[in-house]
Design a protein around this nucleic acid. Structure first.
Length: 672
DNA sequence: GACTCTTAAT
């Protein structure tokens, strides 16, 4: 039996810490007869490694009191603990001690101080420490490189990377990771190629990053090559790499391969569990996702958020709220991601009451200043028809990105404030030179032009898309344009526009034209548009709108034979008229209305309950029975937002009447 | 012993 000395005691301490066995570790620490700097530091660092930063600080205090002189390693650990605690005052106190004990020129200590400053967003401080260092090593350079990336300045970071006196795998890996995280997947791949060419050995972090970048690019084959290589060098069971691989395979639709990777991981952590849940839900396999989710031994926020996002993406809104409630019951605090998802569900359902409630909750949790939450709120209020609140939230947002602007611009346009929406767009252009209008904003702008009849302005925007904004018009933009021309009766122009499209128009584009033909009763163009829709013959249920529209046009012209033929064709193609659906929330319960089968089983009760109070509502009530979408009007009435709708009420009533007329005509049709 | 890594959201 070898003799136990100071070294073996310290080895016991750090060994147990490494295995996460804090109690055993401290048992040995307290009984160590040879307590010295090294054993103290081993224990402090052990706490830090296990995320127990407060305990680390407490132990550090005990160490100072017992007159043991800390060394550079101690300080590096303690600084990291303050960084992880995000505690600036603590960090500054530690800095005082560092100076007092004379370690302010120690490279490792300075490196960790730079990281500390970065975590606390003290950019100047980080820069000062870096500049004052007499000697710098790769770590210092990598840390400062990371600073520029954190500031969102990838260009500057790249410059530093190029200028660094020396590089190691970590610097390469950091640069690649950052490119990958900020959506520059191609650049990440390019850098990886260079790295391999320059004979650096990629480490596990690097593999994790590059696989993640390849997943973003949906580059399955390249990813599989890397997977092969990783397996060859025996890293295939690494959790980091495996999590990325799971993401890669499921993003490319190969959930079974993802599952194989998942099954191989010997020590699964939360992240890889979460990746698997996300993988299944990305591919619409919600049952499997839920199955895996239920098995996660130590769920964290991300697990819950992933499950919520899964249901959201697959439009199972009731489940979204169910899981959210379970999350709260479980005692997990929702964060910004949770709120942005759940508010998105409220927006889609136009569920104003729930949305308001969540607005309050997010405020309580201090999340109201987050871009994601603010944007989601703006969108939710706009989609629920409460445009005033939407504007209020938007104007109070301290930070806005292009998605926030898009939500507001689109929201105004959709709520009938198209002119204001265009003014806002112009304001954005003037005041935010850094925000480059993207294709989403531009399609919102075209939508606005289309809806306030500003055809020429719309045409101008469309024509300057590529020249001024450098955005190539996509099918959606063309559809907006066609819609705009069709709505204003410029049907032949609209038709010409479709014909000159650089690629094959999509179903919606023709449908937009057909819609215009219906309004302006142009049978000739309608016939041509219909023929095209015919030829495209897309046999999916949701694409049946065109046929319905066509049969309506025939119906309005009294061409019953054609109506019958259209319907027969739909039947042959197995198309069902997709039912329009609307819903209304009463006492926290969601009730659906389908325009096809007409009656909700409790319709009468609900109408009496909510619409019985005001005249306007009663008026709506009867129409709702035939057209579910009128519901929202009525809801606006009961929630006190009716006045905002008054201007539009007429046109909506007209539309509703049109629809009712159509269905009446159809039912008049002799053989229907 | 320090710097880098994987999952969720508008």
């Amino acid at each position: 039996m070898p003799e136990r000395n100071e070294v073996s005691w310290t080895a016991m301490i750090s060994g147990f810490f490494r295995g996460g066995r804090v109690k055993e570790s401290m048992w040995y620490f307290e009984r160590n007869p040879f307590q010295n700097v090294v054993s103290w530091t081993a224990a402090i660092n052990g706490f830090v490694q296990n995320g127990l930063n407060l305990d680390a600080m407490k132990l550090f205090r005990r160490m100072l009191v017992s007159d043991v002189r800390p060394n550079d390693v101690t300080f590096t650990s303690v600084v990291r603990a303050s960084a992880d605690l995000r505690d600036f005052v603590l960090g500054m106190n530690v800095l005082g001690l560092i100076v007092k004990f004379g370690f302010e020129q120690n490279i490792s200590v300075c490196n960790s101080l730079i990281t500390l400053s970065l975590r606390l967003s003290e950019i100047d401080c980080a820069q000062r420490i870096f500049d004052r260092m007499e000697t710098k090593d790769v770590v210092s350079w990598t840390a400062i490189l990371d600073m520029y990336v954190e500031m969102g300045n990838l260009k500057e970071a790249r410059q530093i990377f190029e200028d660094m006196p020396e590089r190691n795998e970590v610097s390469w890996s950091a640069m690649i990771a950052r490119y990958s995280q900020s959506g520059n997947a191609e650049e990440a791949v390019e850098l990886f190629r260079q790295m391999v060419q320059d004979c650096y050995d990629p480490n596990r972090s690097c593999f994790a990053s590059i696989i993640s970048a390849l997943a973003n690019l949906k580059a399955l084959q390249a990813g599989m090559n890397i997977h092969g290589h990783v397996t060859k060098i025996g890293l295939e069971k690494d959790v980091f790499i495996s999590s990325s691989l799971i993401d890669l395979y499921s993003t490319c639709g190969e959930t079974e391969d993802a599952r194989l990777v998942f099954n191989l991981i010997s020590e699964k952590n939360v992240v890889c569990w979460n990746s698997m849940v996300s993988g299944y839900s990305k591919n619409g396999q919600l049952e499997k996702a839920k199955e895996v989710f239920d098995l996660i031994p130590n769920k964290n926020k991300v697990s819950w958020n992933t499950m919520i996002a899964g249901y959201l993406e697959n439009e199972q809104w009731d489940k979204v709220f169910e899981v959210f409630n379970q999350m709260l019951l479980f005692g997990e605090m929702p964060n910004k991601s949770t709120f942005s998802s759940i508010l998105c569900a409220c927006a889609t359902m136009a569920s104003l009451e729930k949305g308001k409630n969540l607005h309050g909750k997010s405020f309580k949790l201090g999340l109201q200043n987050d871009v994601f939450v603010g944007t989601a709120l703006t969108d939710m209020y706009a989609k629920s028809g409460d445009i005033m609140s939407s504007k209020k939230v938007f104007s109070k947002m301290p930070e806005k990105n292009e998605i926030s602007w898009t939500a507001m611009i689109q929201g105004l346009a959709e709520n009938g404030f198209a002119e204001e929406s265009l003014i806002l767009f112009e304001e954005m252009e003037k005041t935010n030179s850094s925000l480059v209008p993207n294709e989403l904003i531009l399609s919102a702008v075209l939508f606005a032009c289309s809806h306030c009849g500003l055809v020429d302005k719309g045409l101008w925007y469309f024509n300057s898309m590529e020249k001024v904004y450098g955005v190539k018009p996509n099918t959606r933009h063309y559809t907006c344009l066609v819609d705009m021309l069709s709505r204003s009766g410029r049907l032949s122009e609209a038709e010409k526009c479709i014909e000159t499209m650089p690629w094959k128009p999509d179903y919606n584009t023709w449908a937009a034209l057909l819609g215009g033909c219906f309004t302006y009763k142009d049978e000739r163009i309608a016939n041509r548009a219909a023929m095209k829709l015919w030829e495209m013959g897309e046999d999916s249920e949701e694409k049946s709108g065109g046929y319905v529209l066509l049969s309506n046009i025939y119906a309005s012209a009294g061409r019953w034979v054609d109506v019958l033929n259209t319907r027969k064709l739909m039947k042959e193609k197995g198309l069902k008229k997709s039912s329009g659906c609307s819903w209304v929330e009463v006492r926290n319960q969601i009730h659906h209305f389908y325009s096809q089968d007409g009656n909700h089983n409790q319709s009468e009760e609900i109408f009496d309950g909510i619409f019985g109070k005001t005249r306007v509502d009663v008026e709506c009530g009867c129409k709702i029975k035939k057209n579910g979408h009128m519901c929202m009007m009525a809801v606006a009435g009961t929630t006190g937002h009716m006045d905002k709708y008054k201007a539009e009420a007429d046109s909506i009533y007209k539309t509703a009447n049109n629809i009712l007329d159509k269905s009446d005509k159809l039912s008049n049709c002799p053989a229907a």
